[in-house]
């Protein structure tokens, strides 16, 4: 099924300079009881974003009106922990289309790519400079060009190449879906399933 395409994204960013942000922080388990994919953005970073009375925590970046945009810039090892895809749905539903960090957890990375959210891995020192810059100047924009695989910090001109596997890049650029690809392989899969594996 077709998904939103990702080609070039130029946007201001939301800085989250914390390391090891796990998927329980992104979307706490008590919000996982829904049976559809929509609406998780309301509870993105729920326990950091709201205090226990349900009021907004003014100290949290999503509640700071100076920051906004479609790119989340986060400390290293982002998305560790639970495999819940709800974490990606929440980030996407909130409005982000890319997450920039120096290191992502594996399952989070796969889940992102399967949902049109681009994870961009950049060097740790550059990540530090972006976080500092955005803190000082929330209007600073970043440009992510998926075709060229370049991330550029507009005000400073600093840029870096990032990697993504060629197949996934193609899927993101064209808004394609793995399942359509696999459904088209049905005969090949059926042949494979018939191979002799005596104990299965």
């Amino acid at each position: 099924m077709a998904k939103e395409k990702f080609v070039v994204l130029e946007s201001t960013c939301v800085p989250l300079p914390l390391e090891n942000v796990d998927t329980d922080q992104i979307i706490p388990a008590r919000f996982l009881s829904a049976t559809s994919r929509e609406g998780f953005g309301d509870n993105l970073f729920r326990d950091w974003r709201y205090n226990k009375n349900g009021e907004k925590n003014p100290a949290f970046v999503l509640n700071d009106p100076s920051f906004g945009g479609r790119i989340l810039v986060a400390g290293k090892n982002f998305g560790s922990g639970s495999s819940r895809e709800h974490a990606v749905w929440a980030i996407y539903d909130y409005g982000f289309r890319a997450v920039v960090s120096s290191f992502f957890a594996d399952i989070f990375m796969n889940n992102s790519l399967n949902n049109g959210l681009l994870p961009v891995v950049i060097p740790e020192d550059m990540l530090g400079r972006i976080l500092d810059l955005v803190k000082k100047d929330p209007s600073a924009k970043i440009r992510i060009d998926l075709e060229k695989q370049i991330l550029k910090v507009i005000p400073t001109g600093e840029e870096t190449a990032f990697s993504i596997n060629a197949y996934k890049k193609e899927c993101m650029l064209k808004g394609l879906d793995d399942i359509d690809f696999l459904l088209a392989m049905r005969n090949e899969i059926d042949e494979f399933a018939k191979r002799e594996r005596p104990w299965l």
Binding site: S83, E85, H86, N110, N165, F181, I189
Partner: peptide
């Protein structure tokens, strides 16, 4: 290994999963 829901759908539909080799 653990997978996300899009991959659950993938395996239900095709009994296969697309994975980069770790």
């Amino acid at each position: 290994f653990g997978i996300g829901t899009s991959e659950v759908e993938m395996v239900l539909a095709t009994q296969c999963i697309m994975q980069p080799r770790p």
